[in-house]
Amino acid sequence: MSRWAGLMWWAAAVPLLPLALPLAVRTRRTALRLAPAAGVCEGVAGTERTGAPFRLLLLGESTVAGVGASCLDFALAGRLAVALSARLGRPVAWRAVGENGITAGEACERLLPVTADQDYDLVALVFGVNDTTHFSSSQRWRGALTQLIEHFRKRGARVVCTAVPPLQHFIALPWLLRQLLGWRAALLDRQLGALAQAQGAGYCEVSLEMQPQFLAIDGYHPSALGYQIWGEHLAEWLVQPLSTKAAPGAHSPS
């Protein structure tokens, strides 16, 4: 986010705080809270296929933890692994390391150490919703993502960043909060795309039309159908010829 764009957001948001803050407090108090998906956090898709398994890691916030799905097989990790296996023609060994409510900066401290025991062919970073709602500074957002990207690229992985989800479509939020947070999410997303390109990572923008059935009953996280559509979209983007991309690399909500 450019300094000017950030200042514009604050200039618009500050006068609305007397309205927005009570809405935020009430929403936090009354929101339906869903648990992370059940089951183990890793698996293998496409076991009927031959060849060495493609190693996939998803690192991120509540969507990586599978909130909104019954188990991780039906969340982003499992759906993406199945879709990638079908397109690559080989098994995909996936692992999901996610935490509900975590920011990118917190992930550097708490999630990176969990992944130190293994190398991966592809790492998908799924962040943005919590950095939006926690008002992470532009500097902290960029710094955390840079650390994550550099860490996995140094270990030989292809790194892709999923786009910051469009919070203006999260029906659990009152209209005013949707507009303010959607605007801020778009600013962080613009910065994410530029940073990914500069760091040699991939970035997959949101190109799906948001529909109510893509959201879980909490109106905030993806539904099983939402995860399926997202996983298919991301897999299709990932296997496109690299020559069609600005950088080797991938998208999201949280």
Results as ranks from 00 to 15, higher is better:
A186F: 05
P113T: 06
R190W: 00
R155G: 06
T50C: 14
V92A: 00
G60W: 04
L19N: 01
D121Q: 07
S138F: 05
A96Y: 09
R178G: 06
Q197N: 07
V114H: 10
A5N: 06
V114M: 15
P22M: 06
L17K: 00
H151L: 09
G6A: 13
Q139I: 00
A5Q: 14
A20L: 14
A93E: 15
P166N: 10
E232C: 05
I217F: 03
E150Q: 14
V129I: 10
P91M: 09
S85E: 08
Y227C: 13
N130V: 10
P174G: 02
D218Y: 03
P174I: 03
A172Y: 10
F127Q: 09
L192C: 11
L238R: 05
Q118I: 08
I229T: 13
L225M: 09
R110S: 01
V64K: 05
F214M: 15
A216W: 10
L188Q: 10
P91A: 12
C41S: 15
L238Q: 11
M8Q: 14
R140A: 11
C108F: 01
H169N: 13
L88V: 13
F135S: 03
W4H: 14
E232W: 00
W175S: 11
E150T: 13
R55V: 04
V160E: 15
A24R: 09
L58N: 00
Q228T: 13
G249Q: 04
D131G: 07
Q139E: 11
L80P: 07
L145M: 15
A83T: 09
S70K: 13
C41K: 07
R95D: 00
G128A: 04
G68C: 13
L176R: 08
A163M: 02
L7C: 11
T63V: 10
L56S: 02
Q147H: 12
G182M: 02
L238E: 09
A35P: 06
Y203G: 08
S243G: 09
G249I: 08
E232F: 05
A65C: 08
R79Y: 12
A77G: 04
P241E: 01
A235S: 11
G202A: 03
G66N: 11
A246T: 08
W10G: 02
T30R: 15
L181Y: 15
Q179Y: 06
R155E: 07
L188K: 11
S136E: 15
C161F: 08
Q228A: 15
W230E: 06
A201G: 12
L173H: 10
L19W: 14
L19M: 14
L19G: 04
V64Y: 05
F135N: 03
G128R: 00
V239N: 06
R190H: 12
S62L: 07
G89A: 08
L125E: 09
F170T: 04
A144R: 02
W94F: 10
T162H: 03
F214V: 11
S138W: 09
V164K: 08
R184I: 01
E61P: 01
A216Q: 08
T244S: 13
G249S: 02
F152Y: 14
N130F: 11
L112E: 04
A104H: 03
G219K: 10
T132R: 11
L19S: 07
R184C: 01
L72E: 04
V92C: 01
A81K: 01
L176M: 06
A216I: 10
L59H: 02
G202T: 05
